[in-house]
Amino acid sequence: MAWKPSEISDQSGRTFVITGANGGIGEQTTKVLASKGATVIMACRNAAKAQQVADGIEGDVRVAALDLASLASVREFADSTGAFDVLINNAGLMNIPFSRTADGFETQWGVNHLGHYALTGLLLDKISDRVVTLSSIAHKQTPKLWIDDLNYENRRYQRNLAYAQSKLSNLMFARELQRRLTAAGSSKRSYGVHPGVSATDLFAHTETPLDKIAKPFIRLIGHSPAKAAHSSLFAATMPDADPAIYWGPARFMGNRGPVEQSSSSKLSRNQDLWRRLWEESERLTGVTYKF
């Protein structure tokens, strides 16, 4: 039988931090966890919008400001956050026009990967249980990881490849973090998951005519944000979930379906690239992990 959120045990006494929780998959994840008794911290760039969402959710839901496009904001959030159980790296941008973050990083890669890399490293000693990082089936859509030009200094910007590279980086980061946790003898775990395809606001910020037609089309091939949240919820709460498995929908080319073992690209399994990505992320953010 397919896994359902009803299988989640009582989460009273546990605290979850979720980035980008003011809509879509993050909002749905927050609702379920709060309904199970958890304390949920919605870490969002737009705190006012997040508070409006939080006010409509029953349970212990709190809002904190976090802008993943600013390392200063990431450090401020990390400094002000106490001990908790689970970090869910959920926030993301998709297929936006070229821009750079406050620190000069290409925005999709800077927010989706580097911001979460820095956040996780700065919070790791405060996390008691696990880290869940959302990747995407789009990680398969890039032919390589431009390890020598991850930040688009010397190549033409292609928004779809930039997004795919950021999602590939998410998956490689999750796997390398697990490898390093295991090597350090830590009981903490790192999961890479994907939600399938869902008509969230990710599809409404490309600043092209596609913004008006994307959601209706995606509804035909994907599934609801509530079902898309199942991958995150499964990895965040199931005690015996295997961190070596890439959890997510596997049916209809990964677009939708129940949570199960999902396929990933050969490129995403290149452990040398995991290491090199980690080293480059450390160099660019200045964040060194302490295991």
Rank of each mutant, 00 (worst) to 15 (best):
S70N: 04
A38W: 07
S6A: 13
S136C: 10
E282A: 07
H116A: 08
S268K: 06
L68R: 03
V197N: 04
R256K: 14
L168W: 02
S186I: 10
A184L: 12
P225V: 04
A69Y: 01
A228H: 01
F234K: 06
V74Y: 04
C44F: 02
R156M: 13
L93G: 05
Q261Y: 00
K140A: 14
T19N: 10
R283C: 03
I88P: 00
P195Q: 07
A204V: 02
R155M: 12
R175C: 11
Q165I: 10
P258Q: 01
N90P: 08
F203Q: 08
T30Q: 05
A72H: 10
V32C: 05
P258V: 02
V61Q: 12
S264W: 08
K215I: 12
R100S: 14
A250D: 03
I96Q: 12
A214L: 11
I88S: 00
A64V: 09
D240R: 01
V193A: 05
F291E: 05
N170Q: 10
Q52G: 13
L122I: 11
E58K: 07
P5A: 10
A38R: 00
E153S: 07
D201H: 00
Q51M: 14
H194L: 14
R180D: 14
V193E: 13
N255Y: 15
R283V: 05
D10E: 15
D10T: 05
R251K: 07
R14Q: 12
